[in-house]
């Protein structure tokens, strides 16, 4: 039982990170139907900005996270303007290929300037204390990751549900033409969506840096892929779906490694995903809209 609870703690903090990344995926998808494969690499850029902010500017981790989020928000908007906007009226798969191109560009530009070697988040950026709660080891990092993720998700929910911008985002994702006719600036709304999604990825990047200490230019690929799976699992384009999908993915992976065989972890994670999709073809939270004829 104690081991099980420990595994749940492990799974929840991993899941929180996946959920944050999955949110960005899902928001972008919801609004322009693009699988933004460069999302994981924005996370990597965020982690590096956080790193330099701590090491060069000497800020604390929260300021570093804020700086990374702002910088990546700008980066996200720029990427959308340069690479995705020209393709808005072409096929979705063309945009997908562009996203893959952008992903390579971010990875290898970083390698070019900063070498492919990993970098180490300074230990003093986030002092670690371990708490022993009923035999479960709970580190201050777990708490940091979990609480910041939840706070960011609450803020996101607030923005989407209670502000005008959020209303605009929902309107555009529902029906672009109608939203335009209602006087909503579609371009601006899409930019804001990219900004928010990228900022969340940057936050996740800094968390990964703090949580696992090391970052490298290719670090975004695997979490990006896992988060994409999580987003699909929850029903892509649906925000609560991404959160649940992220946590589910984290817990699932942890349980497979903990009780099954770690050798087959990725296979089982994908296997469960496929089974869920076969039972519910649009993801856990997906609406079965039926066919439009």
């Amino acid at each position: 039982m104690q081991e099980f609870l420990q595994q749940m703690v492990n799974g929840l903090s991993l899941g929180a990170i996946y959920a944050l990344i999955a949110l960005g995926y899902t928001m972008v998808y919801g609004i322009i139907m693009l699988i933004n494969f460069a999302h994981g690499d924005i996370l990597m850029v965020g982690a590096y900005i956080g790193f330099f902010s701590v090491v060069v500017l000497g800020t604390n981790i929260f300021v570093a996270m804020a700086i990374a989020m702002i910088a990546c928000a700008v980066l996200g908007v720029v990427i959308e303007k340069v690479a995705y906007r020209p393709l808005r009226n072409s096929t979705r798969i063309a945009a997908l290929i562009t996203a893959i191109g952008v992903s390579f560009f971010l990875e290898y530009t970083t390698i070019f300037f900063l070498t492919p070697n990993q970098r180490v988040y300074p230990a003093e950026a986030f002092p670690v204390t371990n708490y022993d709660v009923m035999g479960i080891t709970l580190s201050s990092k777990d708490i940091f990751v979990f609480i910041s993720a939840v706070v960011l998700m609450v803020i996101l929910q607030y923005i989407i549900k209670r502000t005008k911008t959020g209303k605009a985002m929902r309107a555009v994702s529902l029906d672009k033409e109608a939203a335009m006719l209602m006087g909503i600036s579609v371009d601006k709304t899409i930019s804001i969506t990219f900004a928010i999604g990228s900022a969340l990825a940057a936050a996740a990047g800094v968390m990964i840096g703090v949580y696992y200490n090391s970052i490298n230019p290719l670090m975004g690929i695997i979490p990006g892929l896992k988060a994409f799976v999580a987003a699909v699992l929850g029903g892509i384009g649906i925000i609560p779906g991404a959160m649940v999908g992220g946590f589910l993915m984290g817990i699932l992976e942890t349980l497979v490694s903990g009780y099954g065989s770690s050798l087959y972890r990725d296979a089982v994670a994908f296997g469960v995903l496929i089974i869920i999709l076969l039972i519910k073809p649009t993801g856990l939270f997906g609406k079965n809209t039926g066919e439009k004829v």
């Binding site: 081991e3 420990q6 696992y212 690929i221 942890t254 349980l255 490694s257 903990g258 770690s262």
Partner: peptide, 20 residues
């Protein structure tokens, strides 16, 4: 006998198992 994949960052699940 357990394994991880290059690029992994979270080993705690398997470590918990090994610990036991």
């Amino acid at each position: 006998e357990e394994g991880f994949v290059n690029g992994d960052k979270d080993f705690r699940a398997t470590l918990t198992k090994i610990k036991s």
